[in-house]
């Protein structure tokens, strides 16, 4: 198993001087090629910041990040990102959004006619894979939230990124749509052979999708526990009711509560109850 992403002693401080806030401290993690890793944790644990550091959209103030063995200095086409929303180009139709990267110098470098043909073949294939054929000529704002995220995923995959970074991509979708998207992204992972790093606040989502679940804790943001998900590689929705799944979910939820500082709220409620009694 080869290593795809290496995070070594990474730290991140926002701001300067007295206002400085330590968002991440001493992060060490190795992610294998073609692995699917999910990040969960209480808000403020720095999971999104870490993802953005891997993507090169945020810079780390300590340590080193290697993607495919190269140090990360800013964003690149090898690490495509899918955002929660507002990332599609509303002035472009669905197919034009998916082909956006083909218009960039980066995408034009190898411009033989057979490769151009291959590229439009790939755009058609992604359109089909995402179930978007009927919407190819629609504008993004004519689509539902779930369909918009399908376009965003297809667009990110268009340039064959080795790493796909997903920042709460389904956070704004309703529960039913999210389930459909889960199976879709697992299918994509199987077909595309990309390494996927997925940030979410939904523990069930993290377990269902991830081969490993990385639990982060806040103040300062750090890796608390890494769980190997005891489920077969081929997931299906019924596994969400299996004892292994439920046990892991319970364990992770408890750990998040312990690390989030939410205990005070609990004791506050108890105190309130006692006062009322």
């Amino acid at each position: 198993m080869t290593t795809k992403i290496e995070i070594k002693q990474v730290g991140k401080v926002f701001g300067e001087g007295k206002q400085a806030v330590e968002a991440l401290k001493d992060i060490n993690l190795t992610i294998a090629d073609n692995e699917f890793v999910t990040f969960v944790g209480a808000s403020g644990c720095g999971k999104s910041t870490l993802l953005r550091i891997i993507g090169g959209l945020e810079y780390h103030t300590a340590g080193e990040v290697l993607a495919s063995g190269e140090p990360v200095y800013g964003p690149g086409a090898d690490r495509a990102m899918v955002f929660q929303h507002y990332s599609l180009y509303p002035w472009l139709k669905v197919m034009e959004n998916i082909k956006f990267s083909r218009q960039l110098k980066h995408g034009r470098e190898e411009l033989t006619s057979s490769e151009v043909e291959k590229a439009s073949g790939r755009a058609d294939a992604l359109l089909a894979l995402m179930g978007l054929q009927a919407a190819a000529n629609a504008y993004p704002n004519q689509l539902s939230g779930g369909m918009q995220q399908r376009v965003a995923i297809a667009r990110a995959l268009m340039g064959r990124p080795e790493i796909l970074l997903m920042d709460e991509p389904f956070g704004a979708l309703d529960a039913q749509t999210r389930e459909v998207m889960h199976d879709l992204i697992l299918h994509v992972h199987k077909l595309e052979k990309a390494t996927i790093v997925f940030v979410t606040h939904d523990v069930e989502e993290a377990i269902y999708l991830g081969q490993r679940v990385v639990l982060m804790a806040p103040r300062p943001g750090r890796i608390d526990t890494i769980y190997d998900v005891p489920l077969p590689a081929q997931r299906d929705q019924d596994m969400k009711h299996s004892p292994e799944f439920l046990a892991l979910k319970k364990e992770i939820l408890a750990r998040i509560r312990d690390t989030s500082g939410m205990r005070t709220d609990q004791s506050m409620l108890e105190q309130l109850n006692m006062e009322q009694a």
Binding site: M81, S87, W91
Partner: peptide, 28 residues
Amino acid sequence: PLAQIEAAQTMGATRSEIIQRVIFQSAK
């Protein structure tokens, strides 16, 4: 929206490409 710009960055767009193809188009 920052996400529009960042999406282009992670697709390998250069600075001038982002200004012409994303920022200007989006703000038009």
